[in-house]
């Protein structure tokens, strides 16, 4: 018998039960034997090494890892925006290659079409996939209602705040009724208050529609707050370290952030993600700074 998982004591029977039920659902996104390298200065650098992962229907998966672990690349591979040497990606047991409307994507940078109004942005995918303008418009307006942007339906993206832009980007991707929604650090450009608001929005949307979410982030708190399971990657090359069940009950409450199990999970994730990132010895640098004389009216800030 192996040693007990450090977070095992937080896994209450209800959480355990829910996790088991998730694993019994049909698989939605399946990645197997995935290898990916980038050519760099004539040498091939391995970015992802033998990734195997399955996300189940309506599951919320977050991916965390140190920078350079290839988590963004993984999302782009699933979206079909990158090619890979080896491996299979299947959505609902159908192998996919190249981009397609069954995988929606929300990008880190604002990717709304600046020349289209909010409404037309949301209609874009619908019309591209063969819906008539009239029914696309009706559908788009429903989605806009859902995120409370009725007043901005005819505004251009540059007139919206960062949070509003990402809300539109989310419903633009969802309007196509994808099986999987890929999100590549979508809230990293927002300030903390707006980020929390957007996270709640996202959970609310996820609760109400049939979608599997594959969410890339470098913010561990965000991952814990949102995810059912967290895929932890390590860098050089990118490999799966652990697939962690988040030991928090659903629905997540705002005070979750201060709960003991939350902090324990965060501490554990930190140990996984940052263990290999070598710490620069700041102490030495600081002692150098101390040698610089300070001529000031305020000699000591403490």
């Amino acid at each position: 018998m192996t040693t007990e998982h450090p977070l095992a004591k937080w896994n209450t029977p209800e959480i355990e039960d829910r996790n088991q039920r998730i694993l019994q659902r049909p698989p939605s996104l399946k990645i197997s034997g995935m290898h990916k390298s980038f050519g760099h200065d004539g040498k091939m650098v391995k970015v992802l090494n033998d990734i195997d992962f399955t996300a189940y229907k309506r599951e919320f998966v977050c991916v965390v890892g140190p920078s350079g672990c290839g988590k963004s690349t993984l999302a782009r591979l699933i979206a079909g925006l990158e090619t890979y040497e080896e491996g299979v990606i299947s959505i609902n047991d159908e192998v996919v290659s190249g981009p397609g409307p069954d995988r929606g994507m929300v990008f880190q940078s604002y990717s709304l079409f600046p020349w289209l109004t909010v409404k037309k942005n949301v209609m874009f995918g619908l019309v591209e996939n063969g819906m008539s303008e009239i029914s696309a418009e009706a559908e788009a307006l429903q989605w806009i209602d859902l995120v409370g942007l009725e007043r901005f339906a005819n505004s251009y993206p540059h007139q919206l705040s960062g949070g509003m832009k990402q809300r539109v980007a989310i419903i633009r991707a969802l309007a196509n009724k994808p099986k999987v929604l890929l999100m590549d650090e979508p809230f990293s450009a927002l300030d903390p208050k707006n980020r929390l608001k957007m996270q709640k929005y996202l959970l609310e949307i996820w609760k109400n529609i049939d979608i599997t979410i594959f969410f890339i982030t470098h913010d561990l708190e965000e991952a814990i707050y949102l995810a059912d399971r967290i895929l932890v990657l390590k860098a050089h090359p990118g490999e799966v370290v652990e697939t962690l069940n988040v030991p928090l009950p659903r629905p997540r409450k705002e005070d979750t952030f201060l709960s003991e199990e939350f902090l324990a999970t965060k501490a554990y994730l930190e140990s996984l993600v940052h263990s290999e990132e070598e710490e620069v010895d700041m102490e030495e640098k600081l002692s150098m700074v101390r040698m610089v004389s300070v001529k000031s009216d305020v000699p000591d800030i403490f």
């Binding site: 979206a79 079909g80 925006l81 981009p99 397609g100 409307p101 995988r103 929606g104 994507m105 990008f107 940078s109 604002y110 990717s111 709304l112 079409f113 600046p114 020349w115 289209l116 874009f124 995918g125 591209e128 996939n129 980007a169 633009r172 991707a173 196509n176 890929l182």
Partner: peptide
């Protein structure tokens, strides 16, 4: 490039993209 990639994930393909995304962009 994000605009082109976004349009790809929304199902815009091939030559249509020039008219729908690149030219207006």
């Amino acid at each position: 490039i994000a605009l082109i990639e976004a349009s790809l994930t929304l199902g815009c393909k091939g030559r249509r993209m020039i008219g729908k995304v690149i030219l207006p962009g």
